[in-house]
Design a protein around this nucleic acid. Sequence first.
DNA 1: ACTGAATGTCATTTG
DNA 2: AGCAAATGACATTCA
Length: 759
Amino acid sequence: MPSGPAMVYLKKYFTEGLIQVAILLSLVGDKVDVGTYLPPWHGMILGPTSALTQAQLHNLRNHLDGQDVNPKAVDLEGFFTARRLLGWVRSLDHLQLPSSELETWLVRREADAMTMGTPGQSAPLDGGPGGLEDHPGESLELGYGPIRENSVDAMVATPRRGQEEDEEELFKEDTENNLLEYSDNGYYERPERAQEDDRRENEELVGDPRRESWRDGGRNYDLTNRELADDLSDQFESLEAQSSMSLQECLQLWEGTFSFGEEPECPDSVDLGLRQALTEDPSLAVGPLLSPLLSREDPSLDMEQQWQDILAIMEPEDMDVDISRGDVPQFGSTQSYGLIDHVHQDVSLHQAILPENSYSFSPSFEDSVHLEAPLRPSQLSQSPSGPNTLPLTLGSSYLIENELPLAVNGSFGNPIPSLQSSLFPEDAVLPAPLLEDVLLDEISFLTLALEEGFNPTQASELEEELDSDSGLSLNFSHSPASPTGSEASSYSSSSSSSSSSESSVFSDEGAMGYNSDVDAILEPEEGAVGGYTPEVSKMCSTSYQKPDRFNTLPWLEHVGHDHTYHQPKANSPTQGKSLKPQKSRYSKPYQRDISDKLWGRDERRARALKIPFSNDLIVNLPVEEFNELLTKHGLTEAQLNLIRDIRRRGKNKMAAQNCRRRKLDILFGLEEGVDGLRRQKARLLKEQAENLRSMREMKHRISVLYQEVFSHLQDEQGRPLPSTDYTLQFGSNGRVLLATNRGSTSEQPKAHKKQDRKK
DNA sequence: ACTGAATGTCATTTG
DNA sequence: AGCAAATGACATTCA
């Protein structure tokens, strides 16, 4: 199989190498402002260069194995090659790419790819014939159009007609050539039939997202990432919505702790300068703590964000691994955790909008820390939050109730019951539509980990563990673009001949099977062929003219097995369809008893009834020709019945194979979905862990601040006030009031004793 | 002899 | 209505 994956890699190697050289050469000049070069780059990267190399490779391949290159595969490769190259270019961080422009460009390419994909979204990536033939002119407008067009030209036109005069004529004829190629290589019905098949497949794809996600590796991951991002952004939108509440709640709680009256509005400035202190005091301020969340202005974050986006688009297959492991180029000091960063920055975006002195406790913080530990199954059903929500059990309850008081009490020896109880009510429930009950165990584990000092690295390990322990992951997570994936996808993809290695395999089989059939037919004295007639020969000349017809027959891959119709399936692909058994079948008919049991029943019956056609012919002939065949040969009723049965069974056999393969596809797709969901879950858990840690830190700082404030308070005699007896409350006009806390349970402040201005 | 996977076949449904 | 494909269910084969 010289045209298999090895050739693909070789081709990629050449393509990328040449293009990289071209890029570097273009960069050697004084211009580093790539932005102005972007459109030319576009053309250069995706267009002629690619086409040139593809053409060379085409010739090379022709030299090597004489196989015709499948232009669709080229298209696919070119597409991904362009993406890789773009990523490579972007990785040259000294090049100040105008990211907005590049983003726009990429987005447009994506959008174009999507629109181009219709009716079959997979068309661009599948490189189906529709993409080659249907709208050749439009490809100029597409992001990857040049690949398509030029590579096709190069692949098809260059070897055949090197110099054509008129360009339009050229393309027209190229298109025809393209069609002719199909015809030459394959079945004469191919153009319409293939298109119909592709159309049908595209319809399938549109209708069946699983298939799309399964077949279309890159797009699938895009989809997955997009969905993940959507999910996450949805979640965080809801969090935002609640976060606002939480913000208010938090402030109210805070104020309720410090003030007598109800002060719905947040004081902008506090006499004591607490809020200022919160943000300015480096030792006390929550500001630095919040800064990762609040600072959206950090350009590095933007850069990183763009990187995430681009990588999500360009290197989907690597994303899961690389980004989450921090292999992504880091432009900022902020550590990246893949998609989490998107979310993270979404959150920061949101929080950056909030007033600076609004200490927003996201509901996931707020609520999670309220939760009482171990959640029993009965609680699930009792959950008031409905089927979509789930009360989460998080270790933060422990964290809050134990650790924070520990900090407060231990460090300062002054418990702050009101603060504690106000900040951490215990009846809240975290709506978690995304996290299912199956997460509970892992959440508990995470809780444990948090209490033990969880860190992102461990979270990554958790993620990996979650990924690896799935037992479902198999190789499939990498499969859509991998050779192993073609095994399962061959049902669908091979009908559009997108797998070069497979097509070569099957072409061999097809040629072999065909030859054997022809041998059978052309050797009248052999086998059970009693009535070789010119009609049959003619029939063969139309439908079976070319051995390569099997290349493009959608059902060939199954028929490929069918060429062993009379053979045991145990034969390996290399030897199983070799010439010998087939030859022996016909050239040594009297060894039939030896190999008789190896033949199919229908084969034997056909021989018994002296059916003058091969079973392959019977099965694979088009309807019209089949009917013609039946009528023109004066067959007996028994023969006719048997032939019809053979045809029916043969068709059904292939249909069954298709059906089973399709089932496998679906299964694999589901596995992949499960895998993706697991990753998503792990990421969410990781993010939750980080959030909890931030929350814990903030609360710690708040308590420290509270104690700091108290330490500056004195009574009339200048004695320090015990924090157990007094409570700080915010009054109107930014005043901070000190309330006695007699009876300790009563929150109702009795008198404001003193007003203190601090700092 | 038993078992499970792969494959073939039939009946029926679906498009 | 007729046909081919798809599919569920069962049978067969084989390691």
